[in-house]
C-alpha cells in the first residue's frame, strides 16, 4: 500500500526550480532515504509534503487522499510528524513540555497519559535524565534528539526527518541508527541524510534528488552502483 505519493510536484522560487515535476511513491512501512547534494531541493520537497511550503504545481496524496490544499496542521493531525533541518525546539521551556506539546491533543488533554508518553519518548532517544532541564540548556546533540523525541511521541504514520544526524557525535550517530532500525515497522520514515553510512544502514530504499529532479531511485545496492549518482553526488560528496 502506498502511504504517500506526489505527482508532478514542483516549487519555483522566482526563476529557480527548487523542485521540478517530482513523481514520488512511498510504500507504508518503508524507511526511505532522500539524498542529494546541497541545494538539491530536499528540504523544499519535504516542506511541500508536510504543508510548510506551498507547492507551485502538482499534487500530494497521503493515505489515498489529495492533501495538496490542506494546511500543515491538518496534515500533522492526519499522521505526519516533521523535524526541522535547523533544530527547532522551545529553548525556554522544559524538555518535558517540548514533548508534551507534541502529544497533548493526541492524549485528549489527559495530563497523566501525556506525561507517560512524554517520558516514553524521551527514554527512547536516551535523554530521559534531562527531562527537567530547559531545552535551551541541552547540548546541540541532545536538542536534536529532543526534536526526534517530539516526532516519535506523536506516534505518526509518517515520520519526516531532515538531516537528523547533522552535528551529532559518532556515538550518538550509532545510537540514532539503532533507533531508526527499532522504529522500522512501526512507522513509515522519510529520512533526509548526508551521512552515507547512516543511509546504507537504515534505508530500505533511496531516492536521489539533484537540481530539483529525481535522478535515481532504488535499493541501497542499486544506488551505490549507479554511475549517474556517483557522478552527481557520491563521488564528489
Amino acid at each position: 500500500m502506498t502511504l504517500l505519493s506526489t505527482r508532478q510536484l514542483s516549487r519555483h522560487f522566482g526563476g529557480l526550480k527548487a523542485v521540478e515535476t517530482v513523481d514520488f511513491d512511498l510504500p507504508a512501512g518503508q524507511v526511505r532515504a532522500l539524498i542529494g547534494p546541497n541545494g538539491a531541493g530536499k528540504t523544499t520537497f519535504v516542506g511541500m509534503l508536510s504543508g510548510r511550503i506551498p507547492a507551485s504545481n502538482g499534487r500530494v496524496f497521503f493515505d489515498g487522499r489529495d492533501i495538496t490544499a490542506e494546511p500543515a496542521h491538518r496534515r500533522i493531525r492526519a499522521g505526519m510528524a516533521y523535524t526541522f533541518q535547523i533544530t527547532s525546539v522551545y529553548g525556554r521551556l522544559p524538555v518535558t513540555e517540548n514533548v508534551a506539546l507534541a502529544v497533548r491533543w493526541r492524549a485528549g488533554g489527559d495530563e497523566a497519559q501525556t506525561s507517560r508518553r512524554v517520558m516514553e519518548a524521551l527514554d527512547r532517544v536516551g535523554i530521559a535524565d534531562r527531562a527537567d532541564q530547559l531545552a535551551g540548556d541541552l547540548s546541540y546533540g541532545h536538542q536534536r534528539l529532543l526534536e526526534i523525541a517530539m516526532g516519535l511521541s506523536q506516534e505518526p504514520r509518517l515520520l519526516i526527518l531532515d538531516e537528523p544526524t547533522q552535528g551529532l557525535a559518532d556515538s550518538e550517530i550509532a545510537d540514532f541508527i539503532a533507533l531508526i532500525r527499532g522504529l522500522a515497522g512501526e512507522m513509515t520514515i522519510l529520512l533526509i541524510e548526508h551521512n552515507i553510512n547512516v543511509v546504507m544502514q537504515t534505508a530500505d530504499a533511496i531516492t536521489v534528488l539533484n537540481s530539483g529532479q529525481v535522478l535515481a531511485e532504488g535499493t541501497p545496492d542499486e544506488i551505490r552502483a549507479n554511475a549517474a549518482v556517483q557522478a552527481a553526488y557520491l563521488g564528489t560528496g
Binding site: 496542521h73 500533522i76 526541522f84 522551545y90
Partner: peptide, 10 residues
C-alpha cells in the same frame, strides 16, 4: 516561543 514549530506540531 516558536510559532513555526507549533504549527508543525499540528
Amino acid at each position: 516561543e516558536n510559532e513555526e514549530r507549533t504549527r508543525m506540531l499540528g
